[in-house]
Design a protein around this nucleic acid. Structure first.
Length: 432
DNA sequence: CGCATCATAAACAGCT
DNA sequence: AAGCTGTTTATGATGC
């Protein structure tokens, strides 16, 4: 994302005044849009950051402070001063998630349009958004665009259109909510975006951080599992991994769906895109977990592309070995299904036909924490019990590491004792 | 210097 | 007709 952070500072200076009509047009011309957006996000109350500080020393905060975190990431109603989300731009982060560049609300966000779009889409209930909502989300999160030249919308559309990471889906019930299609993140390319996101400052992850509505989905169990790529692989991929995991876990959490976000069959518009994003051009074709089992062929010829991450090798790596956190889907692999039940996200792309067998036999599940409790407790021999015990010990260690990473990222001193208590309690629970 | 990535601008067609 | 959406092309900036 090199060019992103340092892009055209001079143009920022040239940014027209706030009175520029064109820059305000998005909000002005979107009719009921702001209200719709508001429905998507709980009204941001003035987030009291102090409690967050205290709570952050305890992992329980991660899944008990629902309201806090909902406000933490979902607020948008011009509460830049109080909403930590806006601290992405500012310097008053309560938990140390400062943007090193200290960009202000009037300066350009250090994220590429691809990431902005990705964040917007991932933040949506259905993981699909019309362009207008993408505009709106970006505007809410980055007030810079409210006064920026209108060209940014063109750039957004340009990105959507040319970036393979994004795919257009038709609205199933006609175009009830206006013209245009819905845009989703192609799960095939999600790892790219995640990779790119991981390269962003920690605040990038926090920008999406919302707390799962269901505590279980954010329990240390799932957290630990989510941060655990595979058996034998260290959790220490990076601290960012943990943060990304949380972000991704979170991104699957649903709020009150908008009309267009309500669960509905989504038709993937194929084919699409041509250039930009030669992601995985060295990789073989991969099958999407789509209802229609659409197969996406990555044309090796499609090189000159936009992409959200680094080199092709990185992309391939992200696809093959960054399985730890490369997508919400993958994180979901570690979450008990009943925890997923409440989530309605990604209908467009994620198979709803996943069987329990698939889930339990999943290679990742084999090493995943969540799958452990699913093992029939008829443990036939001591060996299996021993293995399970070792597994629990591993889990404890993973919990410590994952939580430590998270807290480290947050710039908060870990409270390992508390963590251990929580972790062990969880472990005991699952042992039972 | 070449390449890749990304931003930006613009033209255009189709649709509402 | 106007505005929005989506596609496409072109160009320049930046980083490696």
């Amino acid at each position: 994302m090199g060019p992103v952070t340092g892009m055209t500072p001079d143009k920022n200076i040239e940014t027209p005044g706030a009175e520029k009509v064109a820059g305000l047009s998005p909000l002005d011309t979107m009719g009921s849009l702001p209200e719709e957006v508001g429905a998507d996000r709980p009204k941001a109350s003035a987030v009291d950051c102090a409690p967050a500080d205290e709570e952050l020393t305890n992992l329980n905060w991660l899944h008990e402070s629902t309201n806090l975190l909902n406000n933490f990431s979902l607020g948008s109603e011009g509460l830049a001063a109080n909403n930590p989300l806006y601290d992405i731009e500012g310097d008053s982060s309560p938990i140390g998630c400062r943007n090193p560049e200290k960009t202000s609300a009037s300066s350009k966000p250090p994220y590429s349009f691809s990431l902005l779009i990705y964040m917007a889409i991932e933040h949506s209930t259905n993981k699909c958004l019309p362009v207008k909502e993408i505009y709106s989300w970006i505007l809410d999160r980055f007030p810079y665009f409210a006064t920026a030249p209108t060209g940014w919308k063109n750039s957004v559309r340009h990105n959507l259109s040319l970036n393979k990471c994004f795919r257009k889906v038709e609205r199933s019930h006609g175009k009830v909510n206006g013209k245009g299609s819905l845009w989703c993140v192609d799960p095939e390319y999600k790892p790219n975006l995640v990779q790119a996101l991981k390269k962003q400052p920690f605040s990038a992850a926090l920008a999406l951080y919302t707390l799962p509505a269901s505590p279980s989905s954010a329990s240390p169990l799932s957290l630990s599992s989510a941060t655990k790529p595979t058996r034998g692989q260290s959790v220490k991929d990076s601290d960012i991994d943990a943060a990304t995991a949380m972000m991704l876990l979170n991104s699957s959490i649903k709020q009150e769906p908008l009309d267009y976000e309500k669960p509905q069959p989504l038709k993937v518009v194929l084919p699409k895109k041509r250039n930009y994003t030669s992601a995985f051009k060295h990789c073989t074709s991969l099958t999407l977990q789509e209802n229609d089992s659409t197969v996406i062929n990555i044309d090796p010829k499609e090189d000159h592309n936009y992409s959200a991450s680094g080199t092709d090798s990185q992309r391939c790596e992200s696809r093959s070995s960054v399985s730890s956190l490369s997508s919400v889907d993958e994180v979901y692999e570690f979450i008990p299904k009943n925890s997923r039940a409440g989530s309605d996200g990604s209908e467009g792309f994620h198979s709803e036909d996943e069987t329990d067998i698939d889930y339990e036999e999943d290679a990742l599940g084999d090493s995943g924490y969540a799958s452990q409790p699913c093992v029939n407790s008829t443990g036939k021999d001591l060996h299996s019990k021993k293995l399970r015990k070792e597994s629990c010990q591993d889990i404890d260690e993973e919990l410590k590491e994952a939580a430590g990473s998270l807290l480290h990222l947050a710039g908060i001193r870990t409270c390992l004792d508390s963590l251990l208590k929580t972790a062990k309690a969880q472990s005991q629970k699952h042992r039972k």
